[in-house]
Simulated assay, not measured.
Amino acid sequence: MYKRALLMMLLFSIILAACSNQKAPRESKTVNDNPTPEDILLENENADIFLLNGIVYSNAEDLEWVTEKELTLGNEIGEIKKQTTNSDEFENYTATKLLVGTKIYEPIENSDIFIVKVDGKEIRYLGLREG
């Protein structure tokens, strides 16, 4: 009887150990979670985005309400430091399309839009936020 119980416990331990090696499924997002570079690039591997202060900003040239919004170019707040399409390498001031050295400006008006200058042209990027 003792050998049988010991054998059952050993078998049970092996099964538990085998199961613990599996990757845990990705936790589902709550309503207030902002999208990550990984979220965006999984949906569109050609997305034109950059990361700033933990917020993903996406090229908003095709959003009429963003392009029509009256904004005045304000202070430079930084520049792109890294370019990659690998979401694991994203950190603040990393972009998928913008070149290293591209300046990022904050409009004088308080908004969730930043402006970059590329070849003298102003391009607006909208912060992607949930909730």
Rank of each mutant, 00 (worst) to 15 (best):
A18C: 03
R129N: 09
V56D: 10
D33L: 10
L51E: 14
F50W: 12
S87R: 05
I115Q: 11
T67I: 15
A47L: 08
K81R: 11
N59D: 13
K121T: 14
D88Q: 15
L52Q: 07
E45F: 04
D119S: 14
G101L: 12
V31Y: 15
M8G: 01
N59Q: 10
A95H: 12
I49G: 04
E64F: 08
L7H: 12
N21C: 11
E79C: 10
D62F: 00
A60M: 04
L63K: 11
N44V: 08
I113W: 09
L6G: 06
V116F: 08
Y125I: 01
A60S: 08
L42F: 01
K121L: 15
E45R: 00
V118M: 04
A24M: 14
E27T: 05
K81C: 01
T72L: 06
N44F: 03
D33A: 09
Q22Y: 00
N86F: 03
I14R: 04
M1G: 15
M8D: 15
N75F: 02
E106H: 02
N86M: 05
L71E: 11
T67A: 11
K82F: 09
G127Q: 12
F12Y: 07
I104T: 03
L11F: 08
L52P: 08
E109R: 01
P25R: 05
A47D: 09
C19S: 10
N46Q: 10
E70D: 05
L63D: 09
N21D: 14
L41N: 07
A47P: 11
L98K: 03
E79H: 06
P37Y: 13
E45D: 15
Y125K: 03
Y57N: 05
A95L: 14
A95T: 01
Y2C: 03
E76L: 00
K69E: 10
E109C: 01
F114H: 13
Y57D: 02
L16A: 06
I113M: 08
L73P: 00
E122H: 06
F90Q: 07
Y125T: 06
K3F: 10
P35C: 11
R124Y: 04
E109Y: 03
I40N: 09
V118F: 14
P35V: 10
L7K: 13
I115H: 02
I40C: 07
T30F: 12
S111G: 00
A18G: 05
V56Q: 12
E76A: 00
V116W: 13
Q83E: 14
G54V: 02
D33C: 07
E106D: 04
T67H: 09
E45V: 03
R124V: 00
E89L: 14
A17R: 05
I108A: 14
K81L: 11
P37R: 06
E106G: 03
T102M: 05
N110Y: 13
N44Q: 13
I49D: 10
V100K: 12
L7V: 01
N32L: 06
E27K: 14
S58V: 09
L63G: 00
E76S: 08
T96R: 09
N46F: 14
V31A: 11
F114K: 12
I123M: 15
R26K: 10
R4H: 11
D112M: 02
T102N: 06
N46G: 01
V31L: 13
A24E: 14
V116Q: 15
N32A: 03
N86S: 04
L128G: 08
I14C: 14
L10Q: 06
K103T: 03
L52S: 10
